[in-house]
Each structure stands twice: as structure tokens, then as C-alpha cells.
């Protein structure tokens, strides 16, 4: 597998009044094409900060994030937007759908940004919500909203899908359905997926598992035989 991202010496400091919090203290890793990565760690360990920085929604204090030969940690605002628009798709714990747009429109909102989108209707069918496209987010269950959020992230056809606690707000059954969707995307479209979670069981379905602790990567496990989402229980 070829590398799609190289992260070196990544640090991130938050200044809160007179206190400086070192959220990341020098993180190094590579991401490869088509792999499924699970990032594990307790609350406050820095996993969301890593996701935000490699997703181009936050800036590093130091270090580099090289994608396609370009260091996005040094990108200007325009380059940042372009990177987010074309390279990454985000899935959030609380879905973050636009409440005034229908399920279908939420997906189209992202599709319109891509030059090579996966058709929104095709994705709606694929996530099993073909008949709920005209529903507004408030008319959908949490699991349905998260599936729409995944479809919205995927429709841009990004090479990297970043998911921040995608099952954090869901029950077990719905959580498994969501993980299945992510695995399908990973396998069907050969796209890299990074999931952040504090649920160690989810790590078993990844190709690699990053363990984050106190702003550093404590260890990286390579999973020889990843299990299918349906075999995960918590």
C-alpha cells in the first residue's frame, strides 16, 4: 500500500488563560491508501486534535502533515478549504446535519463541492434510506442521521474519511450498522478510513490501531485478521 499522508513531529498547544495545555506533544505516523485505521485513547488524550489537524479543520503548533508532497500544516486558508473540499470527508459524533435541509439536500450540499461525486441518491439507497430523502434531520432517528452524515462525507468521493466517535451517540445495533457502512466504503471504494473511538472493541475491525496517550502515540498495533463489524460487541 502506498502512503497518502505522512505526519511528523506534530504538536498542538492550547492557551487557556495563563495555562498552556500541550494537547499533542510530537506525533509521527503514516496513513496508507485503502487502510482502515482505528485511533483509540481515553478522553483528553489528543485523538480528536489529531483528527482535526489531519482533516484540515485545525492548525498544528508545529510539525508537518504532508499530503501529496504538500505540507498542509503550512497551508493558507484557501489551500485549507481546497484540501477539505477535495481530500477529506468528516463524520462527527453528533452528526451535525444542517437542520433546515432535508436528508437528501444535506448530501447534495457536500456533493456540490466535488468534481467527481458519488451520486447522492445512490448513497441514500446504499445506506438504506432511499425513502427518507425528503425527511428533515429532526424527523430521523440518531442512527439514520448518522448514516446520512456518512453519506454526506462519502459523496464527495474523498480519499480520506475521518470519523470522530461515529458510534458514540448510538446504541449497539445502530452502531454496528454505521460501522458496516464505513467498512463497506473502505472496501468498495478502496478509501482510507480513520475512526476515533474510546471503544477498544472497535479496534478489532481495523487494519491498524493507534493508541494515543497524553498527546503521544503510545503504540501502533497491526491487526492481522480484522473482524467484521457484525462480530463486534460492547
Amino acid at each position: 500500500m502506498s502512503s497518502i499522508m505522512s505526519v511528523t513531529g506534530l504538536t498542538k498547544d492550547y492557551i487557556m488563560g495563563e495555562v498552556t495545555v500541550n494537547a499533542l506533544r510530537g506525533v509521527d505516523f503514516e496513513l496508507y491508501e485503502g487502510e482502515f485505521v482505528v485511533v483509540l485513547g481515553p478522553s483528553g488524550s489528543g485523538k480528536s486534535t489529531i483528527l482535526n489537524i489531519i482533516g484540515g479543520i485545525d492548525r498544528a503548533t508545529s510539525g508537518s502533515v504532508v499530503v501529496g508532497g504538500k505540507d498542509i500544516a503550512r497551508a493558507n486558508e484557501r489551500e485549507f478549504s481546497k484540501y477539505r473540499r477535495s481530500a477529506v470527508g468528516f463524520v462527527f459524533q453528533f452528526y451535525n446535519l444542517i437542520p433546515n435541509l432535508t436528508a437528501y439536500e444535506n448530501i447534495v450540499l457536500a456533493a456540490e463541492l466535488s468534481s467527481d461525486p458519488i451520486p447522492p441518491q445512490e448513497l441514500l439507497e446504499a445506506i438504506g434510506l432511499g425513502d427518507r430523502g425528503s425527511s428533515f434531520p429532526t424527523q430521523l432517528s440518531g442512527g439514520q442521521q448518522q448514516r446520512i452524515a456518512i453519506a454526506r462525507a462519502i459523496t464527495k468521493n474523498p480519499f480520506l474519511l475521518l470519523c470522530d466517535e461515529p458510534t458514540g451517540a448510538l446504541d449497539h445495533t445502530t452502531g454496528i450498522q454505521v460501522l458496516r457502512l464505513l467498512k463497506d466504503f473502505n472496501e468498495k471504494y478502496k478509501k482510507t478510513v480513520v475512526i476515533i473511538t474510546h471503544n477498544a472493541q472497535i479496534g478489532e475491525m481495523g487494519d491498524r490501531v493507534f493508541h494515543i496517550k497524553d498527546g503521544l502515540i503510545d503504540k501502533i498495533d497491526i491487526v492481522e485478521n480484522p473482524i467484521s463489524p457484525e462480530d463486534i460487541s460492547w
Binding site: G55, I57, E77, R78, S81, K82, Y83, R84, R85, S86, F90, F92, F94, N96, I98, P99, L109, A110, L113, R152, K156
Partner: peptide
């Protein structure tokens, strides 16, 4: 705020 963050995360420019 969150919607703005989402839009920006999706790739919408300032």
C-alpha cells in the same frame, strides 16, 4: 456555530 464548522469541514470556503 456547529453548522458553520460543518460547512467549513466539508470544504466550503470562508
Amino acid at each position: 456555530r456547529t453548522q458553520i464548522g460543518t460547512l467549513k469541514a466539508l470544504g466550503y470556503s470562508n
